[in-house]
């Protein structure tokens, strides 16, 4: 009889434990995730004043984050953002007013950030999951200004610093929709202006062990 009770107890506990694992979301600890984001960006500062103030609707980034502590993850981000603007009948002064060029101007920036990042998530991995983070790395940029047959192209690497924050809204146990914002500061030497722009992104987060 005693043996039967023990047996039943084991079975019931087992079943309930089983039932629980189906219910509980995967705990945050050791949960890694992969993200793919659609990014839009708003240029700020000198980048906006001197070159392009159009919003960028073309951006994409992929991220991978590995959990190192229950609330902390490290990872990387690879991105691509395209800024572009057309200025009709624009006169640009050159060489301190000693020269000028007039025409329809086409300004483009293609920038590719490559960053390592660290994130802190608030709370357990159940339900809505807000996080903050910081990315540090480099970016390769290609900045082009075209007028008529003339083109000035600058290609350079930048040091990048990107504080960021976001919120993950789970749609099932492993997949979330992620809404986030990143402030990008790209610092480069020997260029007329640094880049600073705000990125707003919507992405899909896929968790895995």
């Amino acid at each position: 009889m005693k043996k039967v009770l023990v047996f039943l107890a084991i079975i019931t506990l087992g079943i309930s434990a089983n039932a629980q694992t189906n219910k509980i979301r995967v705990p945050n600890f050791r949960v890694n995730n992969f993200r793919i984001n659609y990014d839009v960006a708003v240029p700020l500062g000198k980048m906006s004043d001197d070159f392009i103030n159009n919003m960028s609707w073309r951006g994409v980034s992929i991220e991978n984050r590995w959990s190192v502590k229950p609330n902390i993850s490290v990872g990387f981000l690879l991105g691509w953002q395209v800024f572009s603007q057309r200025l009709d009948n624009f006169t640009q002064e050159l060489n301190d007013g000693n020269a000028a060029i007039h025409g329809n101007q086409f300004r483009t920036i293609n920038t590719f950030p490559i960053q390592g990042n660290v994130h802190y998530t608030f709370g357990e991995n159940v339900g809505v999951l807000p996080w903050v983070g910081m990315g540090i790395g480099t970016a390769h940029s290609n900045q082009v200004l075209q007028v008529g047959f003339y083109e000035v192209q600058r290609k350079f690497m930048s040091f990048t610093l990107t504080p960021q924050a976001g919120i993950d809204l789970p749609i099932d146990k492993v997949t979330s929709v992620s809404l986030s914002t990143r402030y990008n500061f790209f610092l480069h030497s020997n260029q007329p202006f640094n880049y600073s722009f705000m990125v707003f992104s919507i992405g899909i987060k896929q968790s895995y062990f």
């Binding site: 073309r58 603007q85 020269a99 000028a100 060029i101 293609n110 003339y150």
Partner: peptide, 24 residues
């Protein structure tokens, strides 16, 4: 077009006028 969403399209887009003071 994905790298350069805005680029010259019309003949007049290639028109430009450059002036310079050659004796500063």
């Amino acid at each position: 077009s994905s790298c350069y969403p805005n680029s010259p399209e019309f003949v007049s887009d290639f028109d430009s006028v450059f002036t310079e003071i050659s004796e500063p």
